[in-house]
């Protein structure tokens, strides 16, 4: 279990993390979401004792990370996968980590096998691709067979097969009763992987909820319709709200079937009729729009 209490980090005059409190429970995958610069990586670094909080603190199973004698046996983390020396081999990189925590050298072979890097174990890391670095980072996190795992954007740079592998791995780790905190910007991926979500923006907590609750809480689904005369269609609908969006309209409060039947009864030809399900992405966008630090010119 990871707990953060009033976790705060200030760089100069800006608060990267501002009074963040949450609990990450075991046996489930907790997604850690937020726009660029929201403070996700900073929060993880503070949980792992790399950065000192300006105020507040974080504990892993009741103790600060820094107090663990052999922390890799308690918590494993992938932060920046490229934080390795390019002149070293994958095996030596993991071997130094293993020895520092009293782990047997045999663990290195095991995790290399598990992440699919066994065949390149003795190659210099300098020639690795981003996806290979990610796999090595994940191997490092798994090395001590820890109860708690933190992954900062683990699928960044992975191929589709790798993304599926990470999803399966995270699900398995949670099913084994471990605590898994994972940040990502890929909403569709998160929707499939996470059970629970912690969403932050500008360093503050925006949401701490189950995935289905979170999606349900955001925008509802709608029916997307295109036809020649939308006003005419609207006047024939038995109920629901119609809003124009460029070349189509969105209808809420009524299903696609009812819209189609109403249009048929009125003799209106529909060019498109799509039932759009509520998505994590939509709910997330709605929640974070106000707190995004960097937004593109077009919205």
């Amino acid at each position: 279990m990871i707990t953060a209490a009033n976790l705060t980090k200030r760089y100069g005059r800006t608060f990267a993390v501002n009074g963040l409190s949450f609990t990450v429970k075991s046996s489930r995958v907790t997604g850690f979401l937020g726009p660029n610069g929201a403070g996700k990586s900073t929060t993880m670094r503070m949980i792992l004792g790399l950065d000192r909080p300006t105020a507040g603190g974080a504990h892993i199973d009741g103790r600060p990370y820094r107090e663990y004698e052999q922390p890799l046996r308690k918590a494993g983390a992938l932060l920046d996968a490229k934080s390795v020396h390019g002149g070293r081999s994958a095996r030596n990189h993991l071997l130094y980590l293993a020895y520092s925590n009293g782990l047997p050298a045999s663990r290195v072979g095991e995790v290399l096998e598990e992440v699919g890097l066994a065949s390149v174990a003795d190659r210099r890391l300098g020639g690795f691709s981003l996806g290979m670095f990610q796999r090595l980072g994940i191997a490092g996190a798994l090395l001590g067979d820890p109860e708690v795992l933190l992954f900062d954007e683990p699928v960044n740079g992975l191929d589709p097969e790798g993304i599926l592998w990470v999803r399966t791995l995270l699900r398995r780790l949670a099913a084994e009763g471990r605590t898994v905190l994972v940040s990502s910007h890929l909403m569709s991926e998160m929707a499939q992987t996470a059970d629970h979500l912690i969403v932050i923006g500008k360093g503050r907590l925006l949401a701490d909820a189950g995935v289905s609750d979170f999606i349900g809480r955001g925008s509802q689904g709608y029916v997307r319709v295109r036809c020649a005369d939308t006003a005419l269609l609207a006047s024939h609908l038995p109920e629901g709200n119609t809003t124009a969006h460029g070349d189509h309209v969105r209808i809420t409060g009524i299903g696609a079937r009812a819209v189609g039947e109403a249009a048929a009864a009125a003799g209106i030809a529909l060019h498109e009729l799509v039932e759009v399900q509520p998505t994590l992405e939509a709910a997330y966008m709605e929640l974070t729009q106000a707190s995004a630090e960097f937004t593109t010119g077009r919205s």
């Binding site: 922390p71 920046d80 490229k82 934080s83 020396h85 980590l97 520092s100």
Partner: peptide, 18 residues
């Protein structure tokens, strides 16, 4: 300094926070 240059210092301090 090579640990700082590559960012490896973070990996090291994760393993040995003392």
């Amino acid at each position: 300094s090579s640990e700082y240059r590559t960012g490896m210092i973070r990996t090291t301090l994760l393993a040995v926070p003392r």
